[in-house]
Simulated assay, not measured.
Amino acid sequence: MRLPVPDGLPAAPLRRWLAAHAVPGAETHLDGVHRRVFPGGPDGGVEVTVDLGTAERCTEVVVEADGDVDPAAVRRWLDLDGHHRAAERHLATDPLLAPLVAANPGLRVPRAVSGAETALLTVLGQQVSLAAARTFAGRLVAAHGRPLRSLTAFPEPAALAAAGPDALRAVTGVTGARARTLHALAGVLADGLDLDTADPATARAELLALPGIGPWTVDYVALRVFGDSDAFLPSDLVLRRALGRVTAREAAARAEAWRPWRGYALLHLWTAEVFT
């Protein structure tokens, strides 16, 4: 299937984002072709390939799948129907963001294929580099994922909950505290917290009640899973570096003028700092 991209999007930053976040064993990325598993199908997962091409701008995403996949799910994942135009009109009035918006018009906010998967990966990424988080995630997939045809589906929360924190620590190499947080999150997800359909305010409260989950984690989940285009991570180290090594308090104050599009501002700043 072919999915048109309204206004087009800057393909290079998205290609770099997808490649940088690809979980070993569960995803691959090569020359603008990204492969990953979507929920569904008789085996519990459908392998999907999206081709962004190699041009500077992408005006059409080509999708292939080994089963049924909802085009709307792919569009949401890549934020193809997001409110980027309204965000850019607002953010372009800011002297800091104006050149970033001009450099990458149509930049989207990558969302989530699975809320549970994204939340669990976010915990693995707490206070470590993106490369380290991918290594931990790859180990988790190898140990507890479900092999499909050529990829492995990300582990189900129930499988991680059943494994226990000591086993998760041994498999991934994360700290004991991080393993306990991962296990606690897997437990509430297995018990019925569906981040893809839950009321965001209720889900935020449930997540914040878990040991080891704070505002950074919950705000990242809000941005990518809940689709909150005003979600913001003032304590994020890359963001603070992009703003001139400011404090979290200073970053939050600086971002007030960007409401209600702080999520898009965050992506422009992350892109300028990491994905250009």
Rank of each mutant, 00 (worst) to 15 (best):
V50N: 03
A162D: 12
A20G: 15
P234A: 12
V218M: 07
G25V: 06
S235H: 13
V69D: 10
A257S: 14
H268Q: 10
L96A: 11
H268G: 09
A167I: 03
H29L: 14
L140P: 00
A102G: 12
L269F: 10
V50P: 00
R240N: 13
T271M: 08
G125R: 03
L140Q: 00
L223W: 01
A177Q: 13
P39R: 05
V171F: 01
T59Q: 10
V174R: 00
A142K: 02
V62G: 04
R57P: 01
T93C: 12
L14A: 08
G176A: 09
F136L: 14
L9K: 06
L267S: 07
R108C: 08
P105H: 09
G187L: 02
R204H: 08
L121E: 07
Q126H: 10
R76V: 07
L120T: 00
H90G: 06
P147N: 05
P147C: 08
A170Y: 04
G192A: 07
P155W: 00
T271F: 02
A272K: 05
T59G: 15
V63R: 09
T135L: 12
D79L: 05
A103L: 11
A242Q: 07
Q126A: 12
A162V: 03
E256F: 07
L96F: 05
T59N: 13
P10A: 10
G227P: 00
L30D: 15
R204I: 07
S235F: 04
L151D: 03
D228L: 03
V50R: 00
R111K: 14
R35H: 12
R85E: 15
L210M: 11
